[in-house]
Design a protein around this nucleic acid. Sequence first.
DNA 1: TGTGAGATACGCAACGGTTCGTATCGTTTT
DNA 2: AAAACGATACGAACCGTTGCGTATCTCACA
Lengths: 201, 201
Amino acid sequence: MSGDGTRITRGGRPRSEQLHQAILKAALDLVLEVGFRAVSIEGIAAKTGVGKTTIYRRWPNKAAVIMEAFIAQLGPASRFPEDERAVERLRLQMQTTAKAFRGRVGALVKALLAEAQFDPELAKAFRENWTLPRRKLVFEVLEEATQQGGLRKDLDIEAAIDAFYAPIYYRLQMGTGPISEAYVDKVYEQAMEGQRQRVKR
Amino acid sequence: MSGDGTRITRGGRPRSEQLHQAILKAALDLVLEVGFRAVSIEGIAAKTGVGKTTIYRRWPNKAAVIMEAFIAQLGPASRFPEDERAVERLRLQMQTTAKAFRGRVGALVKALLAEAQFDPELAKAFRENWTLPRRKLVFEVLEEATQQGGLRKDLDIEAAIDAFYAPIYYRLQMGTGPISEAYVDKVYEQAMEGQRQRVKR
DNA sequence: TGTGAGATACGCAACGGTTCGTATCGTTTT
DNA sequence: AAAACGATACGAACCGTTGCGTATCTCACA
């Protein structure tokens, strides 16, 4: 998504890493100030105090700038909290995500995910840098939970991941209710019922 | 959302209802042809063969036009299929929604829901005309299912609705997998487990 | 170990193009 | 008489690009 972070320098003045960071920070601040839509390359340039040429040299459009800023802010996908029970780690991670969604990250995910519906490049970047890494972690924790027992043998992990996380994204976008701790626990609980080994019926 | 469908005519030439419909049709066709983003008021005007003033006189922006066109096309929220078992009606309705999501309606919902993230007016219109009416129907069917027995006594209906439908919306937007019949049945099944009366544990 | 040439980034300004939403015509319909 | 209609012009905003002169760095070569 970045313009060309790995480009080869064959002499000449190198691009300023400091500027790079300053642009990303300004972009992110702007989004949170005025909303994604109202942000323009010109605005980012003005806020950073650079010429917009400098920005266009590195990114193709504003979505790319903001996407990179978003990812850079995240750092590596946050590790799951410690707990020897895999399912409890999952629950805690759901709460962590929910808490993030109540703040800045929520606003950013909301905007980027929406924008991604209109921009295949952005959608790809979002999926690869946000969605898939996080799904992978959940996948692993669910695999471990399976080994620890209690979950059904024929577990459909992909569908299970959706059951745990889709409601959180749903509320983020629909605004049908708050993403409260109580709600997340409720989601966890009912999704977990769907994955348990059946006693009998 | 409409410009002023209920405005009072105090003499003068009345607005043409025929034009109104023609504009809505052209708007919807355009969205499906070129995508929401690429649609402009000018484009709708050109396709309809009217001046764009005529459109601006009735709607504030393109999102409003398309939203009204979308709603008009839907007609009243489709009734649930017949079946004496409430939970089976729910499952069938989920499949109906999924089928719609695989086609034109899916493309429209996806675009409108995304656009709504940037436009509070549009979000309100979407919630009131799409989301809430449909949630209400699910609410009622779940209430009936509760009376028919088998579901837990302390059922959280709002959370339950999310469990059944959020994964479908999730896949619509994330593209992590198809909204196939098998998937929907899987979602139904695991969500239903979360709502069942517990036998014991 | 210098040093100078070449390459590239930088800020700035200006450009043509597009789209938006508004305003202003004269005309048509009720 | 009043309001809708089509047509057209308009200013504003933003886009993405270009040209300019300057700044900064690398590399080749002495």
